[in-house]
Each structure stands twice: as C-alpha cells, then as structure tokens.
Design a protein around this nucleic acid. Structure first.
Lengths: 268, 268
DNA sequence: CAGTGGTCTAGACCACACT
DNA sequence: GTGTGGTCTAGACCACTGC
C-alpha cells in the first residue's frame, strides 16, 4: 500500500491520512491505491459537512496540493464519486456536492412514471400528509433502521396525487434522533422533495436506496386513501435509504396504483 | 473535433475512422473527444463480431498502435465500455467481451430474488417451455420490436420454477429473421440462460433492457400455470431487451409470483 | 482575461497471471 | 520472466464559464 505523504499544514486531515496509510509497500494483503485513499478523505469531508450540498468543493489543483498528490490522482477519486452521484462536475465552473434540491433529479429514487407520457408531463405532485407522530420501533422497523426494538422513531403517512388522482400511499419511518423537531406541519408546509428538506433542515443526505417490490391486494385503508376498490392489485415498494457509506436512515413502505402509472427500471 | 490519424494498414477501419473524424479542430458545433471515437471503433468491432463473447480483445498496447493513439486514450475508451458491462477487464489476463454464459451474471436482467435468502441459494431454476411458434406481430408487439404490424415473429411461453414451485410465467416475442431455426425443442434442451443461447447460436448479444412493472390480478391462464387462485396479485414485468447500441431484439412479458420472491432494485 | 474541468500524451513503476 | 491491466506522475493543450 502506498502511503499518503504527511500533511502537516492540514491538521484536521493528518489523522485521517495516517488512518488509511499504514502498511508497507509490497506484498500487502490489502492493497489500496492512492486515489482510493483520496476518495476516502473527500468522503470524510462530505460526511463531516465541510462542504454542504449545493456548494462547490475546492478545485482539483487545490485538492492535489492539499493532499500532496498529482491532479490526475485527485481527478480519478472525484471521477468515482461523481459516478456514484455524490459529486457533480460542471466544466468551467467547478465540482459541486450533489443535492436532492435540483430540478433534474427531483425524484431520484422514485421510479414511478406516467404511462406512455414524458416524465413529469403532468405538473408537480400534490403531497398530503395524513399523519406524523412519535412511536416505538417494531421488530422489523428496528431491524431495517439498525435500531433496537422499542427505540423511538418518527412515523409519517402521506398520499401523493398526480392530476388530482391519488397514486401513491407511503408510510415512512425515521430514527427520532437525527430528525428531532420534525412535525407534520413542517412536512406539510415544505414545497419540494422530502429528501431536500432532510438535507437543509437536518443535514441528512440520502445517497443510496434499496427497494423490494411485491404485488399485493389493497386492504380497506389502502382502498380508502387511494380511492380504489378493495382487493385492487397494488405495487408494494419497501425502500431503505442510506446516507454516506451505508447507514440506513429511512424506511419507506409505498403502495402504488399502476393503472395510470408504472414502475420503470432501466438496466445496463 | 480532433481527427483520428490515418490508418492505412487497417483497411477495414479506415472507413470508420474517416466517418467519425471530419470536422476541423476549433469552434466545432459537435466536439467529440478522441477516446469517444476510439470507443466507437471498438463498439464497431464488437458489433461486427470481430471478437466473440468470452474472447479476449487485443491488449491496450496493440489497440493503441492500431489506432495510433496513446495507451491512456485507449484505456479511457475501454473503461467506459467496461462500465457499461460490454467488456470485462481482468488484471494480468486481458480484456474480454462480456457474455451471459458466466456463473456470476447468470441472470443479469432478472431481478427476482428469494425472500430474505442469498441469491441462488435454492439451486438452479427449472425451465419448462410450454410453447414456441411463428406468429404475426400485433400492433403493440411490432411497435416494441421496431417491426411492422403483421411481420413474422417467434412467440414462446415458459414457466420458471424454483424448488418445485412455479414462480415466473413468461411470454416472449422475437423477430423471426435473426432467430431463424429456433424451435421449442432447442429451447427446452438448452441448459443455461436463454440469453447465452442467443449469443452462441444466433450471435445476438443483449446488452441493455428496460422494464415496466405493474401489479395485476391473475387471469385464469396465469392461475393455472402458476398454481395460484384466480385474482391473486402478480407483478407484471414488460421487458424490452436491446443489442449493441439500441436495436430492440426481444419483448418479454413476465408474470411473477411475489409470495416467496420479490423484485429487488438497488439505486445509487 | 483567468480559472475551472476535460483531453491527450509519455514514461515509470506496481500487481497479477501464466509459463 | 514476460505480458497483461492498474496506478501515478508531469506537462501540454482544449473547452467552457464568468468577470
């Protein structure tokens, strides 16, 4: 493993640099390229909030000087972070911390689109918060959020409507601690994606998500809120969203009507 | 736009090289970096079958010499093709044309996994071909496959079972021409993924796929073949698979039971 | 104009696989 | 050892943005 050069002028980074570069050069069981170590340092600055979502990070040349590596090495680290949608490169302007509060990526984790229509061709969604209260984590909720059964969680329920038609019913669970002070009123009054609110108000940025999809029959409460008949087939979408690295920060159980919309998944 | 150097020793490539490099250097409306042009040339060789799935392509040094560019430029072109799962890099061995006939990517486009069990923990799938015949393309089938209504297509139906339980019912449509000679017997006797058979027998490699997912109620024929009761909610998965570039080559309508399995989608 | 990211090159060296 | 891909560097130049 190559060692990062010592960075005595950057006291807040020295510790991290030492933490990732310890092993000698040859025959190391876990070889880690320099650019991966740089990537880890940048990730650390993102996690610590040194650069906030939407802001520009230092230029490649500055970062190369700070870490005492070549610009090409910094570039490769940034390339990977940009490929993971954590950073956004803009030629001539700089490199920016990605955010959910952008038009182009309004619904980065919502794959439901109108049937045979261009995405978002029907105007913004109407969001109706039905409920938001503190509760105790059940077994499965605790497991999904890496909490202990009985820990306090925030639980919310909302309906998303498009063109006046209710299409999505969502139950949302959040760990209480990072989201202290979140209320139904705050949720209801916020215009824009919920994940953007999480960023600006609670400094929580969702970076990755896993979804498990099943087909179920609408129960009475589903039917009432989505205005369908009892037993209508619905998509059940269970999503766990993660922050930087792999800390689960949200559990969301969605129920989607698929008469006017469908779940779109492109693979390559 | 930069020009590719002339390659007089490579007659089969000269034409393509000229085709992609015409404009002068400055103020070009459509600037295309050299590595993108190289990527296009490599893609052309893949499409033409110069290198077959599973084979190694020439080394970076050889390709750099052939295209008269530096190794770094070839590397960047290969990097992107590898990121798109068209090539597979193996350190110390070479770069290989990706194939569906590998254990690790057995079901690259099948996202259905057993509930809370490791993927493939239940042994191989049992494939039962129910039908395979020539037919005329209906309106929607023709549109999906970029054919004309009434063109000849091959239509197949099969059931996939895991651990003796039927889980997936699939209707498959293929354009008749590229798959001339495909029979139910050939499908039934082939062990392994269908896409691997397409590669070896028909030189058709599926590279990309789009899926539209809905929840539906099982019809009588669904119920009979999947051994569920009439009206059971099923996932309806309509997939269009594409070959190199963007030619649609397969339409597949799948009906998934989601009692023992679920559709898993990871986003980042 | 200066500053940013983007491309291209050439060379050195490292890690891995096969022989 | 030889050949492959993988990393790192240094420098030159190009394209885009905004002052």
């Amino acid at each position: 493993m190559q060692s990062l050069p010592e960075i005595s002028e950057e006291p807040e980074l020295t510790q991290e640099a030492e933490a990732v570069s310890v092993a000698p050069l040859s025959n190391t069981p876990a070889f880690s390229p320099l650019y991966q170590q740089i990537k880890g340092l940048i990730l650390g600055s993102l996690r610590s909030g040194e650069w906030k979502p939407g802001e520009a990070i230092p230029s490649e040349i500055e970062l190369a000087a700070r870490f005492r590596v070549s610009q090409g090495t910094v570039r490769k680290a940034i390339d990977e972070l940009a490929a993971e949608n954590l950073l956004l490169r803009r030629q001539g302007k700089g490199t920016f911390v990605a955010t959910h509060a952008e038009q182009q990526v309004q619904f980065r984790f919502l794959k439901l689109v109108p049937n045979s229509g261009a995405r978002g061709s029907e105007g913004p969604a109407q969001r109706d918060i039905m409920d938001c209260r503190r509760a105790r984590a059940s077994n499965d909720v605790a497991k999904a959020l890496a909490l202990r059964t009985g820990d306090t969680v925030l639980q919310a329920r909302r309906v998303l409507s498009f063109g006046g038609i209710p299409v999505i019913l969502e139950d949302i669970w959040l760990p209480a601690n990072p989201f202290k002070g979140l209320t139904a009123e705050r949720l209801a009054s916020y215009k824009g994606p919920m994940y953007a609110l999480f960023e600006t108000e609670f400094n929580v940025r969702m970076v990755r998500a896993e979804e498990k999809i099943r087909a179920i029959a609408a129960t009475e409460s589903h039917a009432a809120l989505l205005k369908v008949t009892l037993g209508t087939p619905l998509l059940s979408v269970e999503r766990i969203a993660y922050t930087y690295q792999s800390e689960p920060m949200e559990l969301r159980r969605g129920y989607y009507r698929t008469d006017t919309h469908h779940y779109q998944n492109d693979m390559s």
